[in-house]
């Protein structure tokens, strides 16, 4: 907390060579009940920087679980445990004993399935992440809030009512506000857990446009149960089934010419 403002400084942020994977998952197994049954089994995949990667699969296949492993949100579940393998982000094993989940989460932001702005003003929602990192300087906050809202394509809609409650916004706006809140702390990676599942088609389209724009600045990992959405927004797609990674490739390959039978069945709508 003492020098946390430096995490915002992009010069200080960990650099990755463009060909290096920003996240590499190696033989990961994960359990929600202290290892009795593994929700995820032997997952290995590498997620490239600056791209949008989609996790797809039928419900209960473990795609959301894997996503929550990436910023260790599963720590909140008492009995959750990584039972094998490792995850490296920016070259650092994130489950190493000297890694602080709080520091990790400053680099790996997250947007949730159900939009969850705090019952505060729009401004305070976006500034929240910066405030908990100890930034009090008003001009820094103002600038970050404006920048994030612009990036999330919300600025024009809300700039005149930054002080009004976030709960007064529409559902789509609230979710974009949550995205703005997540990117305000300048993470390298943004995880999105079915960000459009609670939204109508028009709002969904806005969010999808936004994801395409955000791709320039952030590495995005998105979980979706909507296959069209995966084809529209992602560069790479991973298909999970029953806790295992079945296939991982370029999105066009997965949807056009999958190698595995299960993938083909799923993307063509034969099950799931």
């Amino acid at each position: 907390m003492n020098d946390s403002s430096s995490t915002l400084d992009s010069a200080d942020a960990p650099e990755v060579a463009s060909n290096e994977p920003i996240i590499s998952i190696d033989n990961l197994s994960f359990s929600y009940d202290l290892g009795s049954t593994n929700t995820l089994r032997d997952i290995s995949l590498e997620i490239p920087a600056g791209k949008v990667t989609a996790f797809i699969g039928p419900s209960g296949c473990g795609k959301s679980t894997l996503l929550r492993c990436l910023n260790r949100m599963n720590d909140l579940v008492d009995t959750a445990k990584v039972t094998g393998g490792s995850i490296s982000i920016l070259g650092q094993d994130i489950n190493a004993p000297d890694v602080e989940a709080i520091e990790l989460r400053k680099h790996v932001g997250m947007v949730f399935q159900k939009y969850n702005p705090f019952p505060k003003s729009i401004y305070e929602n976006v500034a929240y992440g910066l405030r908990v990192q100890g930034i009090k300087n008003k001009s820094v906050l103002d600038q970050a809030v404006e920048e994030s809202l612009q990036k999330s394509a919300l600025w024009d809609e809300v700039k005149d009512r930054l002080d009004s409650s976030a709960l007064g916004l529409s559902g789509g706006q609230q979710q974009r506000l949550c995205i703005a809140r997540a990117i305000a702390v300048k993470p390298q990676i943004v995880l999105m857990d079915e960000p459009c599942s609670a939204l109508d088609p028009i709002a969904t389209a806005r969010i999808e446009e936004l994801i395409a724009e955000l791709q320039e600045d952030f590495t995005i990992v998105i979980v979706t149960h909507n296959m069209q959405q995966a084809t529209r927004v992602s560069n790479r797609t991973a298909f999970f089934y029953l806790g295992e990674l079945i296939e991982y490739d370029d999105t066009s390959k997965i949807f056009g010419n999958p190698t595995r039978k299960q993938t083909e069945d799923y993307v063509s709508g034969r099950f799931g």
Partner: peptide
């Protein structure tokens, strides 16, 4: 208090205590 508040706060890098105090 909905769990989403806690998740959102923690996902932004808040410590437990910050999360409790502010969210």
């Amino acid at each position: 208090v909905p769990g989403g508040f806690r998740e959102a706060s923690l996902a932004l890098g808040a410590t437990r205590w910050q999360c409790i105090r502010t969210a």
